[in-house]
Design a protein around this nucleic acid. Sequence first.
DNA 1: ATCTGGTAATTGTCCAGGACAACTTGGGGT
DNA 2: ACCCCAAGTTGTCCTGGACAATTACCAGAT
Lengths: 315, 315
Amino acid sequence: MSIYDFVQDKLSPQPAMSISAVERETGLGKDTLRVWERRYGFPKPERDGRGERWYPAEQVDRLRLLKRLIDCGHRPGKLLAASEEELDRLSDGRRPETPAGIDEGDDVAEQVIRQIRNHDLPGLRQILRQSLMRLGIERFVIEVAAPLNQAVGEAWTNGELKVFEEHLYTEEMKGLLRQAIASLPAAVNRPRVLLTTVPDEPHLLGLLMVEALLTLDGVPCVPLGAETPLVDIRMAALAHHADAVALSFSLAFPGRRIAALIRCLRDLLPPQVELWIGGAGSRWASKVDNVHVLPSLPLALLAVREWRERHAAQD
Amino acid sequence: MSIYDFVQDKLSPQPAMSISAVERETGLGKDTLRVWERRYGFPKPERDGRGERWYPAEQVDRLRLLKRLIDCGHRPGKLLAASEEELDRLSDGRRPETPAGIDEGDDVAEQVIRQIRNHDLPGLRQILRQSLMRLGIERFVIEVAAPLNQAVGEAWTNGELKVFEEHLYTEEMKGLLRQAIASLPAAVNRPRVLLTTVPDEPHLLGLLMVEALLTLDGVPCVPLGAETPLVDIRMAALAHHADAVALSFSLAFPGRRIAALIRCLRDLLPPQVELWIGGAGSRWASKVDNVHVLPSLPLALLAVREWRERHAAQD
DNA sequence: ATCTGGTAATTGTCCAGGACAACTTGGGGT
DNA sequence: ACCCCAAGTTGTCCTGGACAATTACCAGAT
């Protein structure tokens, strides 16, 4: 790895990155990058004196786009053939373009995105806090946080928000949700729910929203943070006598892996421990048996209610 | 990747992992694992029917240990020869061994680790909260959180704590610190400090501790969360008119990369923006010019004071 | 003794190109 | 409609060679 691996090579007119940097930047493995080059002729990086690949920034941008489309379900073979049609498919959900005057924004999401763009952290903080106070936790989570999340995610993939802007929003929202959760009384009624994500899934926001709703409903939550190895999820569920394990999959998580992962975890957990899957990636989970798929937040509350009815009847 | 990649092979008596899993688990790259096998004869994984490597759990444990020692400055070539002397070197900072009766534990750290081991989340929560209330934020962060962090980290690398137990602690401490930060009034006096970590460094706890101390000192903080790309750190620093950028490196981050990364970021940032480096990995940063290395938490406060004196004199 | 410069060993990452299992697609046949 | 099998796709693994960057070592000069 060169000293300047993390940044564009300043001497060449076009910025370029090493294969490691591209892997980190796009999430595509080194092997995948090489095999794409061999098979499809793209990407076609420059080579330096010793034959090592240097990817121009424009190819890296395209790789990022391809990765996103693949994560959305498109096949690599198709995507790596076309050139301009891709931009078409991309632009599907994208072109609203906020035509100059965005001042009808009584919508909180719109206000928030404007504050993010203005880099006004105190303003952002104030709007979110106000909204939380006015609506209460449940309505805030369902009516504001969830759609806002989606809007920010879309704006990010469309390039309308920079990475650091998205980071700032995420951090702020996480803080706010944690604060809201901490303000609630300790819950004691079953079911006891363990919340986490699988390895390679660092996105925690969705899980925090669920935790807020569950805690509000008197459900004791055991938050394990992100990226817990499956065997540890099993051990944690046993150690904490969990009645259910809730996982969240973001849109960015490679959909193809989800079903296998869940099946695997389902086998690891005792049968009486339920498995709840939420988040944008949950649609890939519907093929698995004995798993509760909860694509939207209110369904988590429903799952709790069902569990309680079932177990009230039994005892 | 096999379906059961994420979990031990249930048929073999000893649990085992694929090379991807070992990479994720130990932080050693696939190439490194293969070249060690070729050169030093360790690790020596089993092979399945199609010649793919399956690493027994004990070898993975040893790899984890080796990784930690290498990160501490030992050379791979030496480590991969000895067998029992390693345990000696390891045991240096380890052997207290809590001899059966641990009931003198008026030390919070000891109590906390006991609660983690007992999987008593309410108890853990209560102890931490009580301690925070009694000591106040500043003393809590410096006298409890920091040493506790180190103790938990060591217990984890020594195998005394499971991954999920460490996750639970980390999550709880993050929540508590965020709550403490949120309880403080909004700060407005410069310097304005931007806090984040570089890509591949997901550990946020140290940064949260700094944020708590800084906010307490009236420093407005811009928390970007973890793993912000270097170019985005630059953009964020410009957009938010930051006076300093604070980075944190955990012990787990590959030390060799640190100096190059920091030099690179130093070049990207405007000269008047200071660069503060903290955390266990900060000792690798001391070679770089124009960078403030802050190996312990109180030094962050000192850096603020110095900045203010310098700029009070100027204006 | 301490510094200095240059040679030698160490070490992580890269490359090529072959192989293959898991998955998807796309027809027939019932 | 449904199911099932063949053909195509696709990511990941393998081997073994190469090399630049870093570190250790040692002799000679100060």
